[in-house]
């Protein structure tokens, strides 16, 4: 009987995907709570630091929710290695199973994880990306957050594009497909370089994106306006050279005192009235939900970051 159980267990172990486990460490004052970055640990953020799992930052994949099997982790590691070699940026994959109803909670969790685990420690601006998946069955969420110089390469528009593209894969839990797509896109955008809009922006010493509006030459507008003005100028001057205009009436020769109307009748036919509601004229301020490129909240991580996520 024991043999049968053993065979069954071996069979189950063989056919089921092998799950990896993440090793975490304790945060103590002796190891400066596991934070070697320049963030000062004080009363305002100590709670956030302590609740953030301390992991080995040489790893890149932290699948707390066990959503990837060993093969998938291996594939993802290859992708990350290739990406980091190409860009010099750190890439972190983080999955968790947290009952977070708020996007901000998800963001705090993922961002603190990056900031308080020494990711990107070798880079002046701690540059890197974290792909975060909250696999909680009630509050599924996925997000990409950017740190340091990656905030320049992956602006809101590009991140939105990536998040929208991989939505179906993450929603259907086809993670690897989504991850492959994600890497294709982040590699593509990296090769495209920093968007023109951010070409004058830079990252400050704390990793915040300092937005400086870039001057974008309005080629199209200048061309169209110059074309219109030139056309009007040429037409006006050509018309000025055409002075011959055939007289079509004889107003100058009309003796106005000779005008005599024997019948002058204005017959009313009908009337029509239309009405429409007027605009009140009061302009309501529009509230736009935009994901800020740089955020810092009390208690949360100290560095600047960008990015956002989706429910699903």
């Amino acid at each position: 009987m024991k043999k049968i159980y053993f065979i069954i267990l071996c069979f189950i172990a063989f056919i089921l995907p092998v799950k990896a486990f993440v090793t975490t460490y304790d945060r103590t004052a002796d190891n400066n709570y596991g934070v070697n970055k320049k963030w000062e640990i004080n009363e305002s953020n100590i709670n956030n630091v302590l609740r953030t799992p301390l992991v080995d930052s040489d790893d890149r994949i932290y699948d707390f929710a066990n959503i990837l099997n060993d093969n998938e982790i291996k594939e993802l590691n290859d992708l990350i290695e290739e990406y980091e070699e190409e860009t010099g940026f750190t890439f972190v994959f983080l999955s968790a199973d947290n009952f977070y109803t708020s996007d901000i909670d998800n963001e705090d969790y993922a961002v603190d994880f990056y900031d308080y685990n020494d990711f990107g420690i070798d880079d002046e601006y701690y540059s890197g990306i974290i792909l975060y998946r909250n696999a909680n069955i009630s509050t599924p969420y996925y997000a990409i957050y950017t740190f340091g110089e990656t905030q320049l390469y992956y602006d809101d528009e590009r991140l939105n594009d990536i998040l929208d593209t991989i939505y179906n894969d993450f929603y259907n839990k086809d993670y690897m497909n989504g991850i492959y797509t994600l890497f294709d896109m982040i590699n593509m955008y990296y090769k495209k370089g920093i968007p023109k809009e951010l070409s004058e922006s830079y990252i400050d010493e704390n990793g915040f994106l300092i937005y400086k509006k870039a001057f974008i030459i309005p080629w199209g507008t200048a061309f169209i306006l110059a074309y219109i003005v030139t056309a009007i100028f040429i037409a006006y001057n050509i018309i000025r050279q055409k002075m011959v205009v055939k007289a079509k009436d004889a107003n100058e020769y009309l003796n106005y005192s000779s005008i005599h109307f024997s019948v002058r009748e204005n017959r009313f036919i009908n009337s029509h009235t239309t009405s429409h509601y007027r605009n009140s004229g009061s302009s309501s301020s529009s509230s736009r939900s935009s994901r800020s490129s740089s955020r810092s909240r009390s208690g949360s991580s100290r560095g600047g970051h960008g990015g956002g996520g989706r429910r699903g």
Partner: peptide, 10 residues
């Protein structure tokens, strides 16, 4: 809406 009639000379 109106219909106007004028008759005369100049």
């Amino acid at each position: 809406y109106y219909k106007l009639y004028r008759s005369g000379s100049m």
